[in-house]
Design a protein around this nucleic acid. Structure first.
Lengths: 145, 145
DNA sequence: ATATAAACTACCATTGTACTAGGAATTTAG
DNA sequence: CTAAATTCCTAGTACAATGGTAGTTTATAT
């Protein structure tokens, strides 16, 4: 099981915006360069996050993107579910009617446990937490994967 | 993010074998019928688990499949990683050399946390645990998803 | 022998991933 | 007013994974 580039690139881009928060808008090109991500591809990922309201944009020269709220108010779970889709391991977690025996299905409860475990981590961490860690260690906002 | 049918079908098949453990071999057709899974597709999934040593097979009439060890000794993590591949959220968790800044990469540590959270659940549960739960509740080894 | 069942091999349609390409719309600076 | 910078939008594309189907071969209990 692998995370797609969507969440990986997306989180890195958001962290970049978090580090620039309160200064000036940051352009796609700048983010893509710093993070070594395809310009055009990142454009699409950010569009998804703009649609969900996580970031806002300013057009024209000197434009770019900004977090739409302070990093401390953005939980990683928001970013993750925006990019990766609703984090449901199996459909019957959301739609119990799909399966006549959901109530006492033992495999279902395992998938639910897994999902809760993952979301627990993502709910407990904000962009601010990441930004703090990143700026404490050298210039470590700089990674490849 | 979704689990593939591989782990879902696979776990259900293994649970079926766990419930039959100690009696007689169970045929693919029987499992597929009980669980409403495509016969031929399940054949492939079980082949993977046979290759990994989780089940053994007996050919010919009255043949079928058996768990190769008692259900209490089979952790869900074994089944999961067999079917879903090594559960690494991102490559640099396994290959730190991919990224020059792994040591202080803050996003990497998040993926590591998520992975640990998931594996925690899967490591803590055995097929026996599931079988116990399943046989306590009516005939609830019977689900669709 | 024969029927049963696994084992193996090959194919296929659909979807998702990770991009690339090109241009249109908007805004700022000069 | 114009030119440049930037976002916004739509489309296409190569590749791999997913979720199967189909047919043949091999082993074995009776």
């Amino acid at each position: 099981m692998k995370l797609s580039t969507r969440s990986r690139y997306g989180l890195r881009a958001m962290l970049e915006l978090a580090l620039a928060y309160g200064t000036k808008p940051m352009q796609i090109r700048m983010i893509a360069e710093k993070q070594d991500i395809s310009n055009k591809y990142l454009e699409q990922l950010i569009a998804i996050m703009r649609a969900s309201g996580l970031v806002r944009s300013i057009r024209g020269p000197k434009g770019g993107y900004l977090l739409s709220k302070p990093p401390a108010e953005i939980k990683l779970s928001e970013i993750f579910t925006t990019l990766e889709g609703p984090m449901v391991a199996v459909d019957c977690l959301e739609h119990p009617e799909y399966c006549p025996r959901c109530a006492d299905c033992v495999t279902r409860s395992i998938w639910a446990d897994i999902q809760d475990a993952m979301m627990g981590v993502l709910e407990a961490t904000t962009l601010q937490d990441l930004a703090d860690k990143a700026s404490s260690g050298a210039d470590s906002a700089d990674y490849r994967i």
